[in-house]
Amino acid sequence: MKIKISYSEDWELAGVIRLLSPKLKDYKVSRNKDGRYKKAYVELEIKFGEVREDE
């Protein structure tokens, strides 16, 4: 699964990466710094039909 994250401060991305870290496969920060928000692309290792532990 791939998702795009928009953020304005580096600490915001760090917090999201920390929350997603159990399933995080890879992430890449966009080099394009133009615009109001910065972007990062995250790839998660999630299989369909997987049951979460907290459910």
Rank of each mutant, 00 (worst) to 15 (best):
M1D: 10
M1Q: 10
M1E: 11
K2R: 14
K2D: 11
K2C: 03
I3Y: 04
I3V: 15
K4T: 07
K4Y: 09
K4S: 12
I5Q: 05
S6E: 14
Y7D: 07
E9Y: 05
D10P: 08
W11M: 11
W11E: 15
W11P: 04
W11Y: 14
E12V: 09
E12G: 03
A14C: 05
G15R: 15
G15D: 14
G15K: 15
V16S: 08
I17D: 05
L20Y: 13
L20A: 14
S21Y: 05
S21V: 02
S21F: 03
P22C: 06
K23D: 02
K25S: 10
D26C: 03
D26Y: 12
D26P: 01
D26T: 13
Y27S: 01
Y27R: 00
K28A: 08
K28D: 04
V29L: 09
V29P: 02
V29K: 09
S30P: 05
R31V: 11
R31Y: 09
R31W: 07
R31K: 15
K33L: 12
K33R: 15
K33E: 14
D34S: 13
G35D: 04
G35F: 09
G35C: 09
Y37K: 02
Y37I: 00
Y37P: 00
K38R: 14
K39C: 09
K39T: 15
A40Y: 02
V42T: 10
V42W: 03
V42R: 02
V42D: 07
E43H: 03
E43L: 05
E43G: 00
E43D: 09
E43P: 00
L44K: 04
L44P: 03
E45F: 06
E45R: 11
E45G: 06
I46L: 14
I46F: 03
K47M: 01
K47G: 03
F48S: 13
E50R: 00
V51A: 08
V51R: 10
R52W: 08
R52P: 03
R52T: 08
R52D: 09
R52S: 08
E53C: 06
E53F: 11
E53V: 13
D54H: 08
D54P: 01
D54Y: 10
E55T: 03
